[in-house]
Design a protein around this nucleic acid. Structure first.
Lengths: 247, 247
DNA sequence: CTCGGGACTTGATTTACATCAAGTGTCACC
DNA sequence: GGTGACACTTGATGTAAATCAAGTCCCGAG
C-alpha cells in the first residue's frame, strides 16, 4: 500500500537521506556536508515481522532505531508478564532513547505490522556528534521532546476522563501523521483496542464505549480500525478543558 | 536554619565542586581537569523563596538548574489554572531538562521551601560538551534517565491502585534520599497532600486514606509530614505485584 | 463454503475512588 | 492568648470505569 516493488528501488537509493535527514529531525540546521557524514552511520535497514520484538528489556544498547516503514509499540513488562504500553511509533520516529540511561533497553519494542527500521549505531552517533555541534543539539532536543511528551501523557492520565483521553489520543496520532505527510483526517489504527487501553490507562471495553460516544457526538467515524475525523475542532474542544470534572 | 551567614563563605568556596561534581552526576567518568572546566560554568548560586517560581512555562531556556538546598515541584498548568504535578526534586537533582526540546520551559518549577540552586548556562554547557565527550555522554544519560523515570510513572498511573501508588511514591523518595546520603527510613515530606495526589493521579482525601491503610498494616508511621518507614520489604512487596487486580 | 478463533461491541453489575461534608490540629498573626 | 486560615483527617454518598457476561463480526485455514 505504502510500498510496491518498483518503489523499493527508489527507497534503496533514497533510504539514507530520507530516513535520517527528513524524518528523524536529527539534522535540523545542519549543512549538506554535515548531513552526509550523518548518513554514513546509516549503513543498513532491516525488516521486523509483525509481532516480533525489535529489542527487549535488558538488551544492551547498540543502536537507536528510526522507524522507516510500519509501526511499533513499546512496553514495560512487569514481573508476572502483564504489560503497560508506553508509546506507539510511526515512520520517522525514533526508538530506543530510554536505553541511553543505563546502556540497556528499558522497554520492549514490538512491531504492530510488518515493518522496517534503520539502526543508528549509538556509540558512533555520539562520536560523530562531538564534531557536529548541531547534531548534538538535535539529539538533546529529541531526548527532551520525549520528556515533554511523557509529561503530557501524565497530565492526561491524571486529569482526563476516558472520553477525553481517547480524543487526545486520536488528535495526537492525527498530528503526527500530518507532520509525516499523511492525512490527518483519515488513518488506520495498527494497534488493538486493549493496546490503546493499556496506553491510556483504561480497559478495552472502555475504549469501545469511548469510540461509541465520540461517534454519537458526530466527532469521528470509526469502523474497526479505520478512523475518519469529522469534527477536528470538536475533538480539540473536548481535550481543551481537560479536567476530570469540568465545572 | 540550613544556612547562617558564616557558612555562606564556606559555600562560596565549596559550591562549585560539591554542587556540580558530586551531586549532578554530570561528571561521572571525567578526569579532574575536565571537572574543573565544568565547574567554570557554575559561576553562581541563588536562593528561591518558598512558593516562588524558579521558572515558568514559556520562559526562554537560559539555564538548567541543579537543586542545591531545599526542594521543588514541577507542574504543567492548564489553560484554566489547574495544575498537574509532574515531579518533585531534591538536592542533587536537575531541573529544566524538558526545556531543551523547544528552547523554552515546558513546565513551572515552584520551591516547596526556601531553596537554593546552581544555574548551569545551557548554551555554554553544550559548547563545553563538544570538547568533553564524557560530559556529553552524561548529559545524554541524564535526559534518558528522565524518560525512564516518566515511563515508570506511566506504569504506575496505568496499573496501580491508590495504596500501591502511595507505597511506590514513598519507596521512590526513600531511594532518592538514600542516594543523596540522607536516611532512607526517615524523612520529611515537603509537599502537601494535594500535591502528592496530583502527582499520583489521586485526590488528597485518597492520599490520607492510603496513609491510614499503610499505617494500619504496620508498614509506615506517618505523622503529618514526618515519615518513618517501618517495613521496607513489605512496601516493596506491595509494589511488586503492581496490578489493579492481583489475581 | 464453513468452521474456529481472535478482535471487537454492548449490556448488567460491582467497585474503587471521587466528591461532599464535617470535623480536628496547628501555627502565624493580631 | 485568642482567632482565623490552612493543612489534614475521617465518614457518608455518588459515579465513572472496571469487571463479568453475552454476544457479533471478520478473516484465514481447512
Amino acid at each position: 500500500m505504502h510500498e510496491t516493488r518498483p518503489l523499493q528501488v527508489h527507497y534503496l537509493k533514497a533510504a539514507c537521506s530520507s530516513c535520517s535527514v527528513l524524518e528523524l529531525c536529527l539534522p535540523i540546521g545542519m549543512t549538506g556536508a554535515e548531513v552526509e557524514r550523518l548518513d554514513t552511520l546509516i549503513v543498513q535497514r532491516f525488516k521486523v515481522k509483525k509481532g516480533a520484538a525489535l529489542y527487549r528489556t535488558g538488551d544492551p544498547l547498540r543502536s537507536l532505531y528510526a522507524v522507516r516503514i510500519g509501526s511499533f509499540k513499546t512496553c514495560v513488562v512487569s514481573v508476572d508478564g502483564r504489560e503497560q504500553v508506553t508509546g506507539f511509533h510511526i515512520p520517522g520516529e525514533m526508538l530506543g532513547l530510554d536505553a541511553i540511561s543505563a546502556d540497556e533497553h528499558a522497554c520492549t519494542a514490538f512491531a504492530l505490522e510488518d515493518s522496517e527500521v534503520c539502526p543508528i549505531h549509538f556509540a558512533q552517533l555520539e562520536k560523530l556528534a562531538q564534531t557536529l555541534p548541531s547534531l548534538q543539539h538535535n539529539l538533546n532536543r529529541l531526548l527532551s521532546r520525549e520528556i515533554v511528551r511523557d509529561h503530557s501523557m501524565l497530565m492526561l492520565m491524571g486529569n482526563m476522563n476516558s472520553d477525553e483521553r481517547l480524543a487526545a489520543f486520536l488528535l495526537n496520532l492525527s498530528q503526527r501523521f500530518s507532520i509525516r505527510g499523511y492525512s490527518s483526517k483519515e488513518f488506520v489504527l495498527k494497534m488493538r483496542r486493549d493496546e490503546i487501553g493499556s496506553y491510556l490507562g483504561l480497559r478495552l471495553e472502555t475504549i469501545c464505549r469511548g469510540i461509541a460516544h465520540l461517534r454519537d457526538q458526530g466527532l469521528v467515524e470509526i469502523a474497526g480500525r479505520d478512523v475518519k475525523i469529522q469534527d477536528m475542532e470538536g475533538l480539540k474542544q473536548m481535550v481543551a478543558g481537560c479536567h476530570r470534572q469540568p465545572r
